[in-house]
């Protein structure tokens, strides 16, 4: 039970949703797994919630090597995990990460768009999407725009969405085979927020070996570390280079202390985990 009154709307078309969202105090909701929690705690007091999950246009999924993967904002995480084998096959790091979001029950409701829209620095789905150069199609009464995911977040719980705008779909380019790992450190082994999450994706591992890295829970927003990627590009994965790579990752972080962990531990893990992942995926053999 939520302690205050608000209106609930269930539009079935985008046009209808735009109208409803133009009202002051109206917010879009999708799986409501974050929103209900916040409303219950009175951290969020909307006048109206506009439930977008009944809009058919937002429920699609497609994949082809040219356009990559595109899916609507109403697609749930479990649908991506269970109904679309392309996710696991072509975006393994993203697949690993969304499997680590909440509980099975949560993933039947939660959407990637919701995870992005909630804009928590701890969002597990985001770091891998950053490494895959994901983009968002954002729509409103005024039209549509494409925003690079890396440009979307502006702070904890903050993003570039304006009143009346909604995330329509997530576009993830296909750049060839990828391997990698989403390493989530958390207090317990399941159903926890990350103390730190590191997505390391290697595009075309046998060819150009493009290493990309993004992190959760180490900065005010999910963080992709281009500087480290630039450093390691076309360099051999020697002890020296890998350690320097990890150092660059680490120095780009600005973690804080909270109930899940201290800034010191997060900072240390921002160095340790990139090396550990490179070793675990078999690209780096050295053991210190």
């Amino acid at each position: 039970m939520i302690a205050f009154d608000f209106a609930y709307h269930k539009p079935t078309s985008l046009q209808e949703a735009f109208e409803l969202l133009s009202e002051e105090g109206a917010i879009p909701i999708m799986g409501s797994t974050d929103v209900v929690v916040k409303m219950r705690a009175r951290r969020l007091r909307p006048k109206a919630v506009v439930d977008l999950k009944f809009i058919d246009e937002l429920k699609f999924f497609k994949f082809n090597p040219e356009e990559g993967m595109v899916f609507g904002s109403a697609v749930t995480m479990n649908e991506l995990i269970e109904d679309h084998p392309e996710v696991k096959e072509h975006y393994p790091v993203f697949y690993q990460a969304i499997k680590k979001v909440g509980a099975y029950q949560t993933r039947n409701r939660a959407t990637v768009a919701g995870n992005i829209g909630n804009s928590s620095p701890a969002a597990d789905s985001v770091p891998p999407l950053l490494t895959y150069n994901a983009k968002l199609k954002i729509v409103s009464k005024e039209g549509e725009r494409i925003v690079e995911l890396k440009d979307f977040f502006t702070g904890p719980g903050k993003n570039v969405l304006k009143q009346g705008e909604i995330i329509h779909s997530i576009i993830v380019p296909y750049e060839g085979k990828s391997i990698g790992m989403y390493y989530k450190l958390s207090r317990i082994k399941a159903v926890d927020l990350s103390t730190i999450g590191v997505a390391l994706t290697v595009i075309d591992p046998e060819g150009k070996r493009d290493i990309r890295i993004a992190l959760a829970s180490v900065a005010p927003t999910p963080l992709r570390v281009f500087e480290a990627e630039d450093f390691i590009r076309s360099k051999e994965l020697t002890k020296e280079n890998v350690e320097e790579f990890a150092k660059i990752v680490q120095k780009n972080t600005s973690p804080i202390t909270d109930a899940r962990g201290t800034k010191e531990y997060r900072y240390e893990m921002a160095y340790v985990l990139p090396i550990k992942i490179l070793r675990e995926i078999g690209l780096y053999k050295e053991v210190n």
């Binding site: 609930y8 269930k10 909701i29 799986g31 409501s32 797994t33 209900v36 929690v37 919630v49 439930d51 999950k53 479990n78 909440g102 509980a103 099975y104 029950q105 949560t106 039947n108 409701r109 159903v191």
Partner: peptide, 24 residues
């Protein structure tokens, strides 16, 4: 939605019924 004690099968899938707004 942290404990699962409210789990019901909703349109064929298990969900936490504490996180579903009733009108939905």
């Amino acid at each position: 939605g942290e404990c699962g004690a409210c789990t019901v099968i909703y349109n064929g899938k298990p969900i936490n019924s504490c996180l579903v707004l009733a009108p939905e």
